[in-house]
Design a protein around this nucleic acid. Structure first.
Lengths: 109, 109
DNA sequence: ACTTACCGTAAGTACAAACTTACCATTAAA
DNA sequence: TTTAATGGTAAGTTTGTACTTACGGTAAGT
């Protein structure tokens, strides 16, 4: 297998592909949380959460900053924007192709 | 053991998390293609492509219909819309949280 | 009927990733 | 300074998944 370039949205899609990371991501949607608060209620250990946070951070989906002994995590808008932009751009190009294909597809299904 | 409910956007994010599937997805953005055309140029075998197409189809990201001996694949707008809706909804709530955090921060100054 | 093109699935393998426990560092409070 | 809270990282295991080859099955052309 050969390595290929990884865009910012690539990492973001990959990060949100995991259900546990999705759960973490959605927990942070409401308000910033410390690591221990994120782990609480999840069916995995705290170290596992730490590892997931690392992935989310690398995908620019969350930001982390120290506050005393706590590591407060919050949503990073950059990763979300990257995905939105990718999908919006995709949408524009795909829509034209879709309309064209819809003509031929009309008699089927 | 970690089985949880899988929404349509869940499957879509998971599907686009794989770089090969991303490549397939983007190939179909321009126009519908047969399986052999999709596999051509990709660094994986055709059966591998078939397996990826299965995942993409299950995530409602592509549609497949027979045409002679060929299986024509095209973008399915439903999966794309599901992701867009998820991100848009997420965006709104996250922004509200930021606003609230900003208010709170202001009060403490 | 035979051949060719197209494609899905089965079986098995190899590597990536998600998880665990154990440990250590840092900070705040007692 | 001792204790408690927080959490990152290492090491190792297990599970998941992306891939391969081999095969069978269908449709179109010869």
């Amino acid at each position: 297998m050969k390595k290929q370039a990884i865009s910012s949205s690539d990492k973001a899609f990959n990060a949100l592909g995991d259900p546990t990371r999705r759960a973490i991501f959605e927990k942070l949607r409401v308000r910033p949380l410390a690591v221990v608060e994120i782990a609480d209620g999840l069916p995995v250990s705290r170290p596992a959460v730490s590892q997931h946070l690392k992935v989310l951070k690398d995908a620019r989906l969350i930001r982390v900053h120290r506050e005393g002994t706590r590591n407060l995590c919050q949503i990073d808008t950059r990763g979300v924007l990257a995905m939105r932009n990718y999908l919006d751009n995709f949408w524009d190009i795909a829509l034209a192709a879709f309309k064209q294909a819809a003509e031929k597809h009309k008699k089927h299904e």
